[in-house]
Design a protein around this nucleic acid. Structure first.
Lengths: 244, 244
DNA sequence: GCTTCATTGTATCTTTTTGATACAATGAAA
DNA sequence: TTTCATTGTATCAAAAAGATACAATGAAGC
């Protein structure tokens, strides 16, 4: 159990972290025409949670969020956006923290960093599913993608955090061209439309959607994509607009 | 100097506050067809700042923001919205805090709460100018309205916080009918248009603006307002849409 | 009392955007 | 060669937005 001894040391003498502040990330990907969210499952407890973490005392908030997600996805320079701070007074979860740690054979001492009230800064991340390689942290045994309509009950207020993230994403979809962060380098118009439809939760008219997208002047048409299906092959497109 | 002795006690043994977290409020009002912002000026230092404060250990984040602004405006149930968290690592301002306190004859002891890194949660508040009664806190000698184009240089990153607030307000203006929080109970179409124009920073066509607003079905037409001017009297309107 | 004038409320016309539908082109399977 | 689902584009109608015009109004000036 050398690993657990290291962990023990780490969590018992938690290094210099900014008190009271945590980060939780609603990490979205798009695959098989489905929006997916990245979730952790803690060891031996059955608790599901959003990937999250704390801020080093000498670290920018944004850097912390990037670091936390880099550790879970292997990606750098992720599209990350703050959407809300969750700061209700009842965000104290001593017992849950103890349970989670106990699941890793770690005992939390009375004055531990974790046994305090935390506010959580919510970030949503839009990432290219094909490039991410999810990996669990030391406290969890899985880090996996879940369909948005199959999200299990999450720890603390994490279900609410997800709901708010999706709400913000919906309103932002019209404001900024952010959804291309969810697609691979090249994609078909159909995939793009499916993405819009899943985020907005409504069907769009194909021909009008295509007209609208093409009129924005942000798509470069590449070669055709021979799907092998018994029908006309769609074009591939590349996003050439201003990156977010 | 009994008052300063009280203050001294208060700030030297700062009560139970949530560490690392502060709140700053971009508080906007509308008067004489001008957007105004509420600013504090600290005693004996010349420092201008956004109204702000800390969160009690047993207080919801939202309640703290409401309390902080209630203390400055006398208003309850203010329209308040988070817009961004400012968390760069260089948000440590020991010297400035010492100066401000020194301006009130208070010495900050080495382990004081203030001598740490703080993140700041930015809120913007939209309030009815006619109902607010600005009052400074113990550390400042003025709490006043300033025209948006005459904002002095502010402490720390407060100018940047303001800029970001205005940016958010602009995008939210189309999303939600929030600007009525800035107007008194009744108002003319002209006042409403001026408000939109100042926030958006562009001129709108009067007739089209009126058509648009009336078509939303959120305005109730009251009696006419006799201005005394040598021209047709405008109608007064009342906002009857869904409140935010 | 009549004229003058800036402002207001509304109407009208045009342009642009959006919504709905139709249709020819395509690529592989039958 | 036929068939068929899908794709790209065109077309027509409806709605929204932009631009301009004009009559109504309320007080001031004469």
């Amino acid at each position: 159990m050398t690993k657990n001894i290291d962990l023990k040391e780490y969590w018992e003498n938690k290094p210099q972290l900014l008190p009271s502040v945590s980060i939780d990330c609603v990490t979205l990907g798009f695959h098989n025409n489905q929006l997916k969210i990245l979730l952790l499952k803690y060891k031996n407890t059955g608790y599901y949670a959003l990937p999250g973490g704390f801020i080093n005392l000498d670290e920018d908030l944004e850097d912390a969020a990037q670091r936390i997600l880099e550790e879970r996805t292997g990606l750098r320079n992720i599209y990350l956006e703050q959407f809300h701070v969750f700061g209700s007074n009842n965000r104290r979860n001593d017992d849950t923290h103890r349970e989670i740690m106990a699941g890793c054979d770690i005992e939390i001492k009375p004055n531990n960093f974790l046994l305090n009230r935390f506010i959580s800064i919510g970030y949503y991340a839009l990432i290219d599913f094909t490039k991410a390689t999810p990996s669990p942290d030391e406290l969890s045994d899985s880090c996996m993608w879940y369909d948005l309509d199959k999200i299990p009950t999450l720890m603390f207020d994490h279900n609410e955090i997800f709901r708010k993230a999706l709400e913000t994403l919906r309103t932002m979809l019209d404001e900024k061209l952010i959804c291309f962060n969810l697609l691979p380098e090249t994609f078909t118009m159909n995939e793009l439309q499916n993405l819009y439809e899943t985020i907005l939760g409504e069907k769009l008219v194909r021909s009008n959607f295509q007209r609208k997208m093409l009129s924005l002047g942000i798509l470069e048409r590449i070669e055709k994509k021979m799907t092998g299906a018994a029908n006309k092959a769609p074009y591939l497109y590349r996003f050439v607009g201003e990156a977010y």
